[in-house]
């Protein structure tokens, strides 16, 4: 414990800025992954355990597109859209066949998918470490804000994640399609009876959730190492976020991802040996006090 260091950091503008930006950097990418997971769960009632593997797929697709074209934008698009298409196919061909069945069947299908994707990546790219590389546009010295430093790429990354989150929230809460999707989550039969193609909607929502995972993977590709199996750690973290925020709640995912980000950023200063314990404690506390999470609906 070093609470003096924590207090000293909070009272210094440069330290506070740097650590707050750290919290956002850590938190926002996590939010992007988690929001996809949460969206799929909220609407389809499916726990997509293969979400981490989708994140990996996004990173590798971006890596390949960047290596072939040299265009960063194309790489982002390939990561996000490629995984969205993959997600739709996965939902239609495989996942839809285990709807309404035991959650463990869904788990089993996702596990099979993880195994196949991990080995597929190893088959295509080998076991070596890969790094997409930073586009020249971002190869600038870090931006100085009130004495603290924030790298340009991270500003971009946080911006994209925030924009995606905002668009998702607006789309669900402010548009007609969003209204239908919300209705679909609560009463799919009724939505179907109104002549709306629920099958298409399910596939679309699954694709959108996958797109978010792919986008996160693509955004991570320039700064994180690409290896087969890289999806595991992000999957576990995003489950912690989902559980804390509430299964199916996008806003909850946002708050919980920030909570984790701030815990890690300021924990590194104030209680470095207890950061993981702290994350576990938060999760256990939430589960015991309010099992449905901070913003989750109470279990019916």
């Amino acid at each position: 414990m070093n609470l003096e260091a924590l207090a000293a950091c909070l009272s210094s503008a440069s330290c506070a800025v740097t650590q707050v930006s750290t919290a956002l950097i850590v938190g926002m990418l996590l939010f992007l992954v988690t929001s996809g997971l949460s969206l799929i769960f909220g609407v389809l009632g499916i726990v997509n355990f293969a979400h981490g593997a989708f994140y990996m797929l996004g990173a590798y697709l971006a890596f390949t597109a960047y290596a072939l074209s040299g265009s960063f934008l194309l790489a982002m698009a390939a990561g996000a859209l490629g995984v969205a298409v993959f997600g739709v196919l996965f939902e239609r061909l495989i996942m839809s066949r285990v709807y309404g069945r035991d959650i463990l069947m869904q788990l089993l299908v996702c596990y099979a998918m993880i195994l196949i994707l991990d080995d597929g990546v190893k088959l295509l790219y080998g076991g070596e470490y890969r790094m997409m590389g930073m586009p020249d546009a971002f190869a600038l010295p870090p931006v100085e804000i009130a004495g603290g430093f924030v790298p340009g790429y991270y500003l971009f990354m946080v911006g994209v994640a925030l924009a995606a989150g905002l668009a998702l929230w607006l789309g669900i809460n402010r548009t007609r399609l969003g209204k239908i999707i919300r209705a679909l989550a609560i009463n799919p039969q009724m939505v179907g009876a109104l002549g709306i193609n629920t099958t298409l909607l399910y596939a679309g929502v699954f694709g959108l959730g996958s797109l978010l995972a792919g986008m996160a993977g693509a955004l991570a590709a320039p700064i994180r190492t690409l290896t087969p199996g890289m999806g595991v750690s992000i999957l576990i973290e995003s489950f912690i976020v989902t559980v804390i925020g509430g299964m199916g709640s996008i806003a909850g995912a946002f708050i919980a991802a920030l909570l984790i980000g701030f815990t890690r950023a300021f924990g590194a200063i104030g209680f470095p040996l207890f950061v993981d314990g702290m994350m576990f404690a938060i999760m256990a506390l939430v589960l015991i006090v309010k099992p449905s999470g901070l913003l989750g609906r109470e279990a019916a």
Binding site: A220, R224, S233
Partner: peptide
């Protein structure tokens, strides 16, 4: 002490900066 196989080291790096 970042975790083994951690994908992200930002908080360790900014701590070093401090």
């Amino acid at each position: 002490w970042p975790k083994l196989f951690a994908p992200d080291y930002t908080e360790s790096i900014t701590k070093i900066l401090q």
